[in-house]
Nucleic acid binder design. Sequence first.
DNA 1: GTCTATAGATGGATAGAC
DNA 2: GTCTATCCATCTATAGAC
Lengths: 195, 195
Amino acid sequence: MARTSGSHAAKTAPRIRAAAIRLFARHGYAAVSMRQIAGEVGVQVGALYNHTADKQSLLLELMEGHLTDLLAACDRADSPDGPVAALEAFVRFHIRYHAERPDEVFIAYMELRNLTPENFARVQTLRRRYEDRLESILRAGIAAGAFRLADARIGTLAIIGMLTGINTWFRAKGRLSLADIEAIYCDMIRQSVGA
Amino acid sequence: MARTSGSHAAKTAPRIRAAAIRLFARHGYAAVSMRQIAGEVGVQVGALYNHTADKQSLLLELMEGHLTDLLAACDRADSPDGPVAALEAFVRFHIRYHAERPDEVFIAYMELRNLTPENFARVQTLRRRYEDRLESILRAGIAAGAFRLADARIGTLAIIGMLTGINTWFRAKGRLSLADIEAIYCDMIRQSVGA
DNA sequence: GTCTATAGATGGATAGAC
DNA sequence: GTCTATCCATCTATAGAC
């Protein structure tokens, strides 16, 4: 959103994004009205349009923001030498990062069909770049003979699916802590690629 | 739907369900109007209400129908002796069954949040019963010392997530056939539980 | 930048004729 | 059972005052 000069501008825009994330994650993009978002922020509907062109742009902004942040964080994270260590580091990074942002994650993979075709393509490009981080690790492991895995691309999709699913059922008050789950997933994934 | 005596009754109800499945899967429950569904079927909006109480009931019907069919098919499928063979049979059954019904599958796990709380509980019960089929296999394998897996419940959720993800990216015209993918997943899942 | 007010479209669901 | 017609609520987005 373009920087504006008024009083609350610097605060309203992020509050709109925060409210939209919460509401879209809870009820779904199509089921949430601009009035509901405005209500959460504490402004009237018309005011929203000072900060976003329309509802679709708001959705795109949330998804692109999430995926851009994810890629940046992934690049900042440690990536140890050796395919097995790198795989474990990726798994732990993914689980922790996603557990901290359940709403953004939920939106980024549930609301794809509510994007216009052009916006969908932009989001898919970012998502693919993230998947490629994992795929590179798997390829390296296969090349080095460290992994027993028939196809790096399918392996990538399988592991990402497994990891992403956590967000659909994990609850902090559940039987196991996130650290427990992280450990179990690390073991399963390491075994799954034959490391 | 109650059986009715008129002319097209026996044909219209299933056509409504088929149209709703297609449209809900493509655009999402909240984004699809009853008018759109009627248009696909070739009737006027008012006619829909001879076959379903309201839009919410239609969604519930689709989900419960899908999950009931899934459970019945799962029970009919061969379940060979021994945890390793049983696990492989489950994986192959799941992949094939789900690949044949992409729209139903998509709805059954994407539209949960559009169910009323009571309907959500009913659907979750059915879903849990399906997951329990896999969980039993994992438990038996752990008990027999055939699997190296720390937790049967987490293992279940991890494997189901991995399998369900296939529907989000698999295309029949893609690089690999479904049989190829089935083989790769069987290997990965068998390895993941340390069999 | 935010407000009120409203345009203009579309939504779910129903009534009553056939 | 299906139709036409319609009620009434709600939606996105905009216009213009402050």
